[in-house]
Design a protein around this nucleic acid. Structure first.
Lengths: 252, 252
DNA sequence: CGTGCGCTTGATAATGGTCAAGACGCGTGG
DNA sequence: CCACGCGTCTTGACCATTATCAAGCGCACG
């Protein structure tokens, strides 16, 4: 099945570059992000065994939906993913954006059902990590167990940061903070910290930050007028990093 | 050290009731909440071994502070705890309230340092669970490993609910939702779902919900005028559960 | 019996939402 | 290749919700 997806992707004209389909955790250039722990190469080989790499998603396709049976967590290899939940009254709440090297789907463990949906913001390559295998492997590989506890803990602290942002910060601060977050995550992947393309729409940004599209747009305009950011549709250039930090009201 | 705290608590005149000091997980009436998984009684005995029960806290005392070395997670046995972080500009963000049977401190795993502070809202008895022991035990006890993955996942989904609340809901909806949350958690402990005493101040409620004290107070007044809630300082009585649900805008 | 803190209530102000219109960009089809 | 149309983004005018500021109440505690 997963093989078929990759086949059909090829039939539709995608060039399966060697990088995308033949990587393993040992040679993946993202492994310092995805597996920050120094796993022994033996361990990495074992982890490799259980990971499935055959899930290229097209823009708009779902990786999973709220309520789906929980089977696996997922690592983003390329592209980007938006996670969101649907509220009681049918509205959508974006709960996170996931970039290469980042792991999502851990919210499904508690009820054995995904608590949110995940869809591709652009074409995305994904590593699927079956949770049952991960559990078994964790039991015999303390560093892996530790790593996953840490990953989940990281998700909690990240959520707390967002909670604080939503609870205490102005529209300017929220948007500036998101730009800084994306910048930092880009830098971690050895990409430019000052120039990048936003994979998500203004609606998604607003939704994530608890703001309307109009407000997001106005904040971008303001930042341009202040000459701390250059915005050309989805292309962002940070002109004055300190200025953006000042707007976000962060010390670090 | 933990023994000393309990000693000093006794010196200061606390009566160590049998219930507080001689429980074990096997006979703790909270174990259906705290350990929802059906651990075998052997397993529970092993867990008992590592749990330390000598941390009665007085109102205002800290269980841990942001930046402290992370050693343990904690279960509330009685009383209530408020978790909060301090923002860059020195303000406080309440990230959660914890009641008997609930577990906190898992945000410290990712950096080996507590990411938030936790203080007692009233006298509280706490079980301390050293994380290193928990990890070791988890490796040989699959149901315990699973349970902790689930607990952390639960924390993530709870945070997502709060994120949605802060991002999408009005002041009325936020306060009503908190009242329902407390009511539900009370019911889980076989306490009244309609009458309870709030352990936290209006400031804490507002802080948690991203509102000012004044707004919280006004919402309570409005709910009283609507005759769906009776508020006498910290004593709450839900007069019309459906009415509160309607105000919170939840279907369930 | 005062003093202070927590809570409530009122008046006013500001931030961001809503509604509306127009610009821009992109894909499709003539 | 250009025109059309739709979806996304921007900008403006106005409005609503909630924050801010201010005052007063009541209970607990010294």
């Amino acid at each position: 099945m997963t093989i078929h997806i990759s086949d059909s992707a090829q039939r539709e004209g995608f060039k399966p570059c060697a990088h995308d389909y033949q990587v393993n955790c040992g040679n993946c250039r993202l492994n310092s992000i995805c597996l920050p722990l120094a796993l022994e190469s033996d361990d990495i080989a074992q982890l490799d065994e259980i990971i499935q790499r055959s899930k290229p998603l097209q823009k708009g396709q779902h990786l999973y939906r709220e309520g789906d049976d929980f089977q696996s967590v997922f690592a983003v290899r390329s592209g980007s993913i938006k996670a969101y939940k649907t509220t009681d009254d049918g509205r959508e709440q974006v709960t996170g954006f996931y970039f290469p090297g980042e792991i999502l789907g851990m919210d499904g463990i508690s009820k054995n059902q995904h608590a949110s949906s995940a869809k591709a913001l652009e074409t995305a390559a994904i590593c699927e990590i079956p949770f049952a295998s991960l559990e078994k492997l964790s039991a015999v590989m303390p560093s892996l167990q530790r790593h996953f506890f840490q990953l989940m803990s990281r998700e909690i602290t990240d959520d707390q940061v967002l909670i604080t942002l939503l609870s205490k910060n102005s529209a300017d601060e929220r948007v500036a903070a998101l730009m800084l977050s994306i910048s930092t995550r880009n830098a971690r992947r050895k990409l430019s910290a000052t120039q990048f393309r936003l994979p998500m729409s203004r609606v998604d940004i607003g939704n994530y930050l608890g703001l309307t599209v109009e407000t997001v747009s106005r904040v971008f305009s303001r930042m341009q007028k202040m000459e701390i950011l250059k915005v050309d549709n989805k292309e962002i250039e940070i002109l004055d990093l300190e200025g953006v930090r000042a707007m976000a009201n962060v010390t670090s």
